[in-house]
Amino acid sequence: MRKVFQEELAQVGEQLVEISKLVSEAFEKATTAFEGADIDLAEDVIAADARIDFLQNSLDERAIDILALQGPVASDLRMIVGSLRMSASLERMGDLARHLAQLARLRYPANVIPQPLQETFKNFAKYDLEIAEKLTVLLETRDLEVARDILKANTAVNDLHLSIFKSIARSDWTESAATTVDVALASRYFERFADHGVSVAQKVTYLVTGAWHPTSIEHS
């Protein structure tokens, strides 16, 4: 019975990794569509989000079944509850990739972001993609050094997010109201994507150390 239980736990972990890989792929495609006004790629991202949603629901159902039927304790219980919370964050990251693709589709054939801010958003994409890719590594290895790398990338994303709001608040900002809203929304999507990545990293840290603290990644 214990062997079956451990196999079920392993399958939950494998599903988290699978979702993480799909999120990373979705985000990479979404940012490419976003930067290049590629409507076909944007449509691919939007359609593929259903697969992430399906896998999240499947994982959650499996985890709830384990809770109901196996009565896990201690670290096993932490693993199951943590997996439920991580799957929710990963699913939300997939939604944010979809939102970027939807913005690209909405403004096609124009680019969403005006030229002066395009480099900033390329940096957003670079750091967020780093977070997405490192999340998969973290879920596979539970290497807390990877978790610390995610935290560093998130700091860079936060700085970029702040710079965007400073830019659109400047007296020499002359873009239309629609463009201003697009820029603010897009910046928020990138920032929230990174925040959810940090949330997953913190939960993995909790599984490894048994301690929950917002800065535990830094001090572990």
Rank of each mutant, 00 (worst) to 15 (best):
E43H: 13
E43C: 04
V45I: 10
I46H: 02
I46T: 03
A47M: 06
A50E: 12
I52A: 09
D53I: 06
D53H: 00
F54P: 02
F54Q: 15
L55E: 05
Q56H: 11
N57I: 14
S58M: 12
S58F: 11
L59C: 11
D60S: 14
E61W: 02
R62M: 13
R62H: 11
A63D: 12
D65G: 13
L67N: 05
L67F: 14
A68N: 02
A68P: 02
G71S: 11
G71P: 02
G71N: 11
P72T: 08
P72S: 07
A74Y: 11
S75V: 15
D76E: 15
L77M: 10
L77Q: 00
R78W: 11
R78G: 10
R78D: 13
R78H: 09
M79G: 06
M79R: 10
I80L: 13
G82S: 12
G82P: 01
G82N: 02
R85F: 11
M86R: 00
S87W: 03
S89T: 08
L90Y: 05
R92E: 06
G94Q: 00
R98E: 12
H99G: 10
L100E: 02
A101W: 07
L106S: 10
L106D: 05
R107H: 06
Y108N: 13
Y108M: 05
